[in-house]
């Protein structure tokens, strides 16, 4: 059912470069292959995993082969989901082993942790909004909307969110009140805490979110293989 829609097979057939085995996919490739937005659980998982790798890189940059320098994200093509469920930022111009910035590049520059988080929040929202018309808005669950609101720094001045979610009352409980305690996101760790608090058991967050991203990679590759065979 994921591939339903007239554009999906054509998009999928041309969605990946090369025919050999792949160890990672960009978020853009995933969106194009499915021709639909990511689901909420995948959004939580990509946020958690991406902030985890950014945090690890920030703490010990020399030990990370998939190094992720601090810079704003401009496109889903810069987020890579790996076969093992790791999520990293794609190397950019000027990074070790990469060509220097030139004409037509995205013009990366080093920036603060909160700026990276803000840009990640925006990219994740756009992945949730993928394919929707300009005058349409996806109804997100309040906790995820709150996470993105805080990441993207779009929270209203009084700290309240826009409550356009009609079914909000039925899911707000003490657990949500606990999550509201983090009113300002300042670090990758804050994002990871909120993502972990989304789960019934917070200690399961590393394994759970890695499994979600691993499944996202595997299912996308399966879809690509399937659609390629049909073509």
């Amino acid at each position: 059912s994921s591939a339903s829609g007239s554009g999906a097979p054509a998009a999928a057939a041309g969605g990946l470069d090369g025919g050999g085995p792949r160890d990672s996919l960009s978020l853009e490739e995933i969106l194009r292959l499915y021709n639909q937005p990511i689901n909420e659980e995948q959004a939580w998982a990509v946020c958690y995993q991406c902030c985890g790798s950014l945090r690890a890189a920030a703490r010990d940059p020399r030990s990370r082969p998939r190094r992720a320098p601090r810079r704003r994200l401009e496109a889903p093509a810069q987020i890579r989901v790996w076969k093992d469920g790791t999520v990293t930022l794609a190397p950019g111009p000027g990074d070790p082993g990469e060509p220097p910035p030139g004409a037509g590049t995205l013009g990366y520059s080093h920036c603060t942790e909160t700026e990276v988080i803000e840009s990640l929040g925006i990219i994740i929202y756009k992945a949730l909004d993928y394919g929707l018309k300009e005058n349409e808005e996806r109804e997100l669950s309040p906790p995820l909307e709150q996470l993105i609101d805080h990441m993207a720094n779009t929270v209203e001045a009084d700290g309240s969110n826009d409550e356009g979610y009609e079914a909000a009352d039925e899911v707000i409980d003490e657990e949500d009140d606990e999550k509201r305690k983090i009113s300002i996101i300042r670090s990758y760790k804050d994002v990871m805490k909120l993502c972990a608090a989304h789960l019934p058991t917070q200690s399961e967050a590393p394994n759970h979110y890695q499994a979600v991203c691993r499944a996202l990679f595997a299912e996308t590759m399966e879809l690509h293989t399937f659609l390629s065979k049909i073509k």
């Binding site: 659980e41 803000e118 929202y125 349409e136 808005e137 997100l140 356009g164």
Partner: peptide, 23 residues
Amino acid sequence: KEKSLYKIKPKHDSGIKAKISMK
């Protein structure tokens, strides 16, 4: 488990989509 379908509503001027688009 989350349903694969999601609800779509008209874009609201004070909604998250409008706020994100202004970033």
